[in-house]
Structure formats: structure tokens, C-alpha cells
Nucleic acid binder design. Structure first.
Length: 424
RNA sequence: GGAGGUGUCGCAUAGUGGCCUAGUGCGCCCGCCUGCUAAGCGGGUUGAGGGUUAUCCCCUCUCGCGGGUUCAAAUCCCGCCACCUCCGCCA
């Protein structure tokens, strides 16, 4: 949620930001119009309410005829106050509804445009040249079968399309990745968390996932729960309605959780294998800090993600996501995209967003600072989304004999194994 | 799932319709006093919104949340939520 005072003082900034996202600037003016009506309604209510309170005190002291006369007026006022209160509430709700639709103001550095308008910040490592090595790489589905690591057929039998089992070394690989990620984050000062995967509507809405992303969210209507698509949701809502002391900042949390996504609108896209699935496990970093510190923190998040990918010995590039591809809450987003041999291109493995004070305003997360109580900034970043990491490792580290080399850093987490061998 | 209890300004508490502009203690902040510290004394200390915006000032809301009764609600009534105790069920 954007500070309405920013919209009042510099509406053109917000209109411009909307255009850079490829969205209509008219929403800004609709919000300002509703703000005007809201303030008029508040003033009207408060004037009546003040009169009611003043007269109410006189009633308490008055006697006889004087009291009777006052009661005539106060009874009238009682009705007027109630009407004015209803009008104020309605104006407030109309205003809030419009304001909540407005996405975060994209950072000036974020490229304008949509999904394909990203800029590449850097390349790290070179894609492996299988042709030079003299063999054709297998995809992760075939490798997963040979290793006894991934069972997609039975995933579909039990749960349907886009579900899978990790079996044997596949399951071992998940636990190894998760433990390694947790160790790295813990070493960087993060507090380890295991978070609820079912949340109530305010948590989902406050994090910004009931906007454009609502179609992608699983809901349990009977109990009014949502299944989270990322532990960003329970981590952001963790400090909702709290005022944090500045000397406890930054607060860094790392969570392991399952993630559930409908993947609506992706029909026919990435249908093979486990690249895009309805459920997966993920280790996610999350930071609460000041708005001023958030930009440096965002660089740190990216640094931790790069460190992680390097330990997995993967070639990747970093992109600066375009404004139109930021989602509702983010002001800026960096994706790390790893080279996937059988895709013949880069695919997103991790992503880190600076949501500035956008989520904090929705979730009412504030800090007590010398110059007042102010909303904090929130940032999130993937360390490991398990299935995609498994795909990247299997495909990039496969050998001509069908085995898969285990990256050195990961070996201690896989009972010292240096390679995964085919079982058939 | 059932029964009972509890929810007040950081913490602990007072408050059974108008004297609540929510009192008191603790904690915290500022100042005074004081060789230092403690004690003592004085003041301040929820958050949000509106008017005005030159820091002041004025007003409204905020006693778990939402309704209702009333001229007037922390206080009375209804619903919901959270927590505690016990029972049931379950991993």
C-alpha cells in the first residue's frame, strides 16, 4: 500500500510509475478523488460527534425543563451522528479498496516494460558444452527415472498433473539441499523458522497475493484458509500489527515450508517434468529493516543467492526484472537464472524482491524511531526452491555414463556421496 | 468438537451507564537534587486519523474484534476471535 500523502503531494510520480508497469494511471486519480470524499465525510462526522459529546455532558448536569429541551436536540443528533458515521465508513472503505489495488511504485532503476524487458546485470560461469564433451544431455525426467530419484507417473496417479514423488536419492537430495541452505542462512545470521502453510485471509491479502496473483492461490472455502504459495506470507505476517524497536533491526528469518500454486494461466507451459509444479518445498529468506537500509539489504540478499548457486557449481545470469513483471508488492526484483541444458536457455532458480514499505503498510508493521513510528521495509529472497534446484543439478552435472556428479559443497550433506548412480 | 473462565494505555492492576479528558504501581524518557550510584522531587510516556500544516494548537477514534440498546457505553445485550482449565478425539 502506498502512502496516500505521497499520492497527494506528487501524483505524477505515481502516474508515471503506473505507465512504466504498463498499467493505467487513471487509478491514481480515482484514489485521490475517493480520498477527497473520505476526508469530507470524516470532517462532517467529527463535527457532529463533537457537538454530541458536548451536549451529552450538559445533559448529565441539567435538570427539569432544561434537560428536556437538551434531550430533544441530542436525540436528533444521535440519528445524525449515526448517519454520518455510516457515510464515513463507506467513504473510507471505498478509498481503501482503490488504494489497495495500486501496486508498489517501481524503483527508478527497474527497467520499464513487461516480462521480456528485463536487463541482464551479469553472467557468472559458462554453460557447459556437452557437444565438446561428445554426448547429448538427458533431461531431468529421464535422469530422475534412471537414478530412481523422481517418480512423476505415480505423482500423477495419486495427486494429478504437476505432482511428483521424490524417491531414494531424490528425497535425500531435497534434505541435503534444505540442510545446506539452512546452514548457510544460519551462518549469515538468519533465525531459522518453520512456518504455517495455511493462513487466514488478512495474511494473504496483506502480503499482496490476493491482487493480480489471486487466481494462482489455493483456498479452503469451508474454513476460510489459504494455502501459501511461499513462506514469504507467514514470515511477513509474523510481525503484523507490531511495533519493533530499531535496535532489533534488521531482523532476518529463514523458513522451510511447502508452497502451493495453482499455476493458473501457465497451461501448456513447462508441462514436462518438475520445473513447474503445484506443490514444492522451499527455503526462503526474509528481512525486516528500515526503508533506508532496504536497498543495501537487497544487494545482500542477491549476494547470498549468488553464493548459494556458486556452491552448487551452476552457471547463471542475474536479471533486473522490468516494472511490469514485479508483482503487486515489489519495487525492485532480481532473478538468478541458471543455465538448463535441455531447455537450451536460462530458467529462474531464485528471486529476491525489495517490497520497501508496501507490505508493512498493509500488515501494519512499524518501527519506533527517534523521529516517530514508521512502517518498516520488507525483503524476501529464495535460497532454494527444491524441484528447480534438483533439475539444475541433475541436468548440469550429469555424466556420459548416466551418473550425476555431486557438487563438492553438497557432498557432506549427502552422506559423503560424490556421485549419484543409475539404479537400472 | 463440548463445558467453564479470562481479555483495560510496555508489564501488573483499578474502574457495574455521565465525576473516564481511563486512575494507580512498576518500567522507560527528560529535568532537579546529589562526590558517584541508589533513594527522593517535578514532568512526560498507546496508536491511528482529520483540521491546520511554521515545531504549536484544536478535534475525532482507539479498553480483543464487530454489531445492538441509550441523549450518553470500558461499563448493559448479541455475535465472533484469541488465550487458560477440564472433557472428548487424534499423530
Amino acid at each position: 500500500m502506498i502512502d496516500v500523502r505521497v499520492l497527494r503531494s506528487d501524483p505524477e510520480l505515481a502516474r508515471q510509475a503506473q505507465r512504466r508497469r504498463g498499467e493505467s494511471p487513471d487509478l491514481v486519480d480515482e484514489i485521490l478523488d475517493r480520498d477527497e470524499k473520505r476526508r469530507t465525510a470524516i470532517t462532517a462526522f467529527e463535527r457532529l460527534r463533537a457537538e454530541q459529546r458536548t451536549l451529552g455532558k450538559q445533559v448529565a448536569r441539567a435538570q427539569g425543563d432544561e434537560k428536556a429541551e437538551l434531550l430533544v436536540r441530542t436525540k436528533e443528533l444521535s440519528t445524525l451522528v449515526k448517519e454520518a458515521e455510516v457515510a464515513q465508513t463507506e467513504a473510507e472503505q471505498a478509498f481503501q479498496a482503490a488504494l489497495k489495488r495500486l501496486p508498489n511504485i517501481a524503483a527508478p532503476e527497474a527497467p520499464a516494460g513487461g516480462e521480456d524487458d528485463y536487463t541482464v546485470i551479469e553472467h557468472v560461469g559458462a554453460p557447459r558444452d556437452f557437444a565438446a564433451e561428445g554426448f547429448e544431455p538427458l533431461d531431468h525426467v529421464e535422469l530422475g527415472k534412471r537414478l530412481g530419484a523422481i517418480d512423476i507417473e505415480r505423482g500423477a496417479k495419486v495427486s494429478g498433473a504437476r505432482f511428483y514423488y521424490l524417491t531414494g536419492v531424490g528425497a535425500d537430495l531435497e534434505l541435503a539441499l534444505v540442510n545446506m541452505a539452512m546452514d548457510q542462512a544460519r551462518g549469515a545470521g538468519f533465525t531459522t523458522m518453520i512456518t504455517p502453510a495455511l493462513v487466514k485471509p488478512p495474511a494473504m491479502d496483506g502480503t499482496g497475493f490476493l491482487g493480480q496473483a489471486a487466481a494462482d492461490v489455493y483456498r479452503l472455502p469451508a474454513e476460510d484458509f489459504y494455502l501459501v504459495g511461499t513462506s514469504e506470507v507467514p514470515l511477513a505476517a509474523y510481525h503484523a500489527d507490531e511495533i519493533l524497536e530499531p535496535d532489533t533491526l534488521p531482523r532476518r528469518y529463514v523458513a522451510f515450508s511447502p508452497c502451493y500454486r495453482k499455476e493458473a494461466g501457465s497451461y501448456g507451459k513447462d508441462t514436462r517434468g518438475i520445473w513447474r509444479v503445484h506443490w514444492f518445498d522451499k527455503v526462503e529468506m526474509f528481512t525486516y529493516t528500515t526503508l533506508e537500509q532496504s536497498y543495501a539489504e537487497h544487494e545482500k540478499m542477491l549476494g547470498w543467492e549468488k553464493q548459494w548457486l556458486s556452491k552448487l557449481e551452476l552457471a547463471y545470469r542475474v536479471i533486473d526484472t522490468a516494472a511490469g513483471d514485479l508483482g503487486l508488492s515489489a519495487a525492485r526484483k532480481f532473478d538468478c537464472e541458471v543455465w538448463i541444458p535441455t531447455r537450451g536457455g536460462y530458467g529462474e532458480l531464485t528471486s529476491t524482491s525489495n517490497c520497501t514499505d508496501f507490505q508493512s503498510r498493509r500488515l501494519n508493521i512499524r518501527g519506533r524511531f527517534p523521529d516517530g513510528v514508521k512502517p518498516l521495509a520488507t525483503l524476501n529472497g529464495t535460497l532454494v526452491a527444491v524441484p528447480r534446484a534438483v533439475v539444475a543439478i541433475l541436468e548440469n552435472h550429469q555424466q556420459a555414463d548416466g551418473s550425476v556428479r555431486v557438487p563438492t559443497a553438497l557432498q557432506p550433506y549427502l552422506q559423503g556421496r560424490t556421485s549419484l548412480e543409475p539404479v537400472q
